[in-house]
């Protein structure tokens, strides 16, 4: 199985963004998807760094793709996403709008925010030129198995959300701005102080969600540690790792070792939990009763 790095979901300062992708050049991953997924207002801060990051990663032997925005509504967002293809890098669509901008038959990838729930949809995307599809994180293992089989029949590589806070929802409203009594248009970049999202607790004080501007993520980090054998058996071709502000190189290395069989089950997740205070894991979408369920022993929330 291969490793794909998801586009960062967070708003990082340009220097940090640049350093993250420089560091990633030495990480043991096959593929990196980068660009702005969540909010078009963030892009101007780091877009000038993108070509250099693409070049660095390509020189390091990685396959590089550019993501579309997850929710395209405004005129400037339409224009900007229509121009993505001009950069000469394969596009990963995360809003179907981005597919409408690609010439028919052009090769592209499909991200986890496109609803690929069944074989007909997978085959339709393949017929339009999709070469790789990362499935929506909420899919159970049975669906993953059926889709990986359908993918292998029509030459589409199927990928699964492997590690990181799970994208659960996207909205027209910016919750970070709302929290600060502002509107989205006048947000003053309220999300910039939360490089891994902002913890949202329930009334009994349980950490539950993570706020990230217009996006809502899980509080828990998805972790495929206990699922890797089943995913391999299902024919899944890659795991997707979602960038986090600290210790991401270690995550890449841990998954590589786990895939190579040099790390026993349970060690990867134990090390991921040890990365920071308050890191909780989940793998329930694949096999549990609820998305938040976890196969391992959980540190107390």
């Amino acid at each position: 199985m291969e490793l794909t790095v998801a586009p960062s979901q967070f708003f990082w300062a340009a220097e940090e963004w640049e350093r993250f992708y420089q560091d990633l050049a030495t990480a043991p991953v096959e593929r990196v998807v980068l660009g702005e997924l969540v909010c078009s207002k963030r892009l101007p801060f780091y877009q000038d760094w993108i070509p250099a990051a693409v070049e660095t990663l390509q020189s390091a032997g990685k396959e590089v793709l550019l993501t579309s925005l997850a929710l395209i509504t405004l005129k400037r967002e339409r224009k900007q996403n229509a121009q993505l293809a001009d950069m000469g890098v394969e596009i990963e669509i995360n809003d179907l709008t981005a597919l409408s901008y690609l010439p028919e038959g052009a090769r592209f990838s499909v991200g986890p925010l496109i609803n690929t729930y069944n074989e007909s949809t997978l085959r339709w995307l393949a017929s339009r030129g999709a070469a790789r599809i990362c499935l929506p994180p909420e899919l159970p293992l049975d669906s993953v198995t059926a889709l990986a089989k359908a993918g292998s029949e029509c030459g589409v590589a199927v990928e699964v959300w492997g590690h990181g806070r799970i994208p659960l929802a996207i909205s027209g409203r910016c919750y970070h701005a709302r929290l600060h009594g502002r509107t989205k248009d006048n947000c003053q970049f309220a999300c910039e102080d939360d490089p891994d999202g902002l913890e949202v607790r329930t009334l009994e004080g349980k950490p539950f969600l993570s706020m990230n501007g217009v996006q809502t993520l899980s509080d828990s980090y998805a972790c495929a540690d206990y699922q890797i054998e089943d995913l391999k058996a299902a024919g899944v071709s890659a795991l997707r790792l979602s960038p986090q502000s600290k210790g991401f190189g270690e995550i890449c290395t841990l998954y590589r070792q786990r895939l190579q069989g040099t790390l026993p089950v349970g060690t990867l997740s134990a090390k991921a939990i040890a990365q920071g205070e308050g890191i909780r894991l989940s793998d329930g979408f694949l096999k549990g009763e609820t998305g938040v369920s976890w196969s391992g022993s959980q540190p107390a929330a």
Binding site: E138, I166, A169, G284, G291
Partner: peptide, 21 residues
Amino acid sequence: CVMAEGRCSLSSYATGLSPNM
């Protein structure tokens, strides 16, 4: 709905049952 419909897994994250599925 305050989230974009058809693109929300909040419910299945907490309960295992979702609008989409």
